[in-house]
Design a protein around this nucleic acid. Structure first.
Lengths: 322, 322
DNA sequence: GTGAAAGCGCTAACAA
DNA sequence: TTGTTAGCGCTTTCAC
């Protein structure tokens, strides 16, 4: 692999001039520029990122820390980040924390050790890890966790929760189960608050149940039957689909007996039968915006510190709208 | 961030000794070792990966090139790779090619520029790109594309195709549609061959149809109705689920009117209603093995050049087994 | 056993 | 406008 020295020799100039030409920093005569470009061409030279990074103490890598890469919602977010990064000459390293503190730490370490310029995270990021990040020079943009760091991008989850509740209420549900996720995620917390507030105001009967991703089992089915819920609000589509599957496999009709509303609008929600009514988050956009915000920040541009994105209800067949 | 110099000063030795101690290369007295470890501890020193990489021309990064990160099958593969890598002190950078030649090239460039030690790829990797890889010092393990490179790990797709066909045949299907993917992927090709061979031998009536990921639309529905297929073989679960959804949304009963069999056994296939009969690929294992093979190779261990993994039929409710 | 010094490929003062 | 040189943090000969 050709180095800057080879290019310099080939072009008959010094390495400094080549460097200047490449980074368009400082003067370089038009003719020398041409010679250099020709040399670069013939040698197929590409500057060594590692050497650059070592000197500048800044790589062109952005770390992306996600809580669960198996969830299609996050893969779409990741694509948004990736596309925005690539367009601007940056690269993305994806880390999957599994909501596990050690994995989180480990990834932050990795990112630091590779001199990442910045970090986009949607994982929990524990207090101590957060401090650790701040002590590094990494810029940090939070996805879906407004308020806890300086910069963040998130969807309007309170509104999302309201939409979920209104949807079931409007379709005649009187006895609702709200399945919520880990309350340490503010995004889950806000959507729950929105739903509960709406439900309380309406005077409907409802209960809440905290569930982690693996938790949909027969106990839930028994409870649903015993309590005779006629509507279920789920904190994401993956759970909603599992719940619908459980119901259907046990002879409960959706939406006939029980109506179900999800959150995220992942791709499969539209193909599922019955197709899932859900709150749509612009996941790709979320990723893009977070990445753009980070890179703008890097370039010293003025950026909005907290970006909030709208969500909307997508009515499909898992609810009975008139 | 502390450097090796700081540690040396703190421990009262030279940087060379610290380096030797850290890499356990060359002699270092027990007492000095203790002093050094203490210094490392108090300074919370972590060696700078970039500097290491620059000198050794080898990073601890493994590139993983995937054709479609939205497909849950690949996220599970990625986790397998990641876990195996992390256990051995390596890191993984995921690239998403979208089956696009330019993106592929771009990622290979990225990997090279970051001095990746190796590459695991499940994407197409065009001929010219393949050459480009070979000209670098990167080791290369192929996932699911046996024969085209020296090292590979793949599931027994021919058998998988046979299992798909046998399953429908055994359940009484007489008129079968085989939906196959991009024939440039040998994994798709082999499963198609297995299915066709079995179907031909049985004397059943069947047709094939090549479909790309976005392709499930109403034209397909019309064709299914017109031809009155009673069984459909799909080249992966994502397509199978889309096909089932399309059928169900249009009043065609699965498995009553048409039986469907998928391939991969992604997570959602079990929750879907009806749950999907499919060929199970050990995706996590696939990723793990590929990564282990690569790292063994790096360490100069003897490895099997082509690893083949078994697949199995998972019978569920989208087919009518007696 | 240990340290001094060179060098990995690049950038950025500083001179010329 | 260009070249010389030091140095980013680390590893590794090669003396001592």
């Amino acid at each position: 692999m050709a180095t800057i020295k080879d290019v310099a020799k080939e072009a008959g100039v010094s390495v400094a001039t080549v460097s200047r030409a490449m980074n368009s920093s400082g003067y370089v005569h038009e003719d020398t520029l041409k010679k250099i470009n020709r040399a670069i061409e013939t040698l197929k030279y590409k500057p060594n990122e590692t050497a650059r990074t070592l000197y500048k103490k800044q790589s062109k890598i952005i770390g992306l820390l996600l809580p669960d890469i198996s969830n299609p919602f996050f893969t779409v977010v990741a694509r948004g980040v990736e596309d925005a990064a690539l367009e601007r000459g940056f690269h993305v390293v994806i880390g999957n924390s599994d909501q596990n503190r050690d994995k989180e730490r480990q990834y932050i370490d990795t990112f630091r050790l590779h001199n990442c310029v910045g970090l986009i995270s949607s994982a929990l990021v524990w207090e101590d890890v957060l401090q650790y990040i701040q002590s590094s020079k990494m810029l940090h943009v939070m996805l879906d966790r407004i308020g806890e760091t300086e910069y963040s991008v998130e969807a309007d989850h309170y509104k999302g929760g309201v939409l979920q509740a209104e949807c079931l209420l409007d379709n005649g549900c009187k006895n609702i189960l709200v399945i919520n996720g880990n309350m340490k995620f503010s995004s889950f917390k806000h959507r729950l608050e929105g739903a509960i507030h709406t439900l309380e105001e309406s005077g409907a009967v409802f209960e809440t149940l905290e569930l982690n991703s693996e938790g949909v089992g027969h106990a839930l089915l028994d409870q649903i039957r015993y309590k005779a819920y006629d509507g279920i609000i789920c904190y994401n589509d993956l759970i909603a689909i599992q719940v619908m599957g459980l119901l259907q496999h046990n002879g409960v009709n959706v939406p006939g007996d029980v109506q179900v509303v999800g959150y995220d609008d992942i791709q499969i929600s539209a193909s599922y039968f019955p197709s899932l009514t859900t709150v749509r988050q612009p996941s790709y956009l979320l990723g893009r915006l977070a990445c753009e915000q980070l890179i703008d920040l890097l370039n010293g541009k003025q950026v909005r510190k907290e970006i909030k994105i709208d969500v909307s209800l997508v009515e499909r067949k898992s609810t009975r709208s008139e």
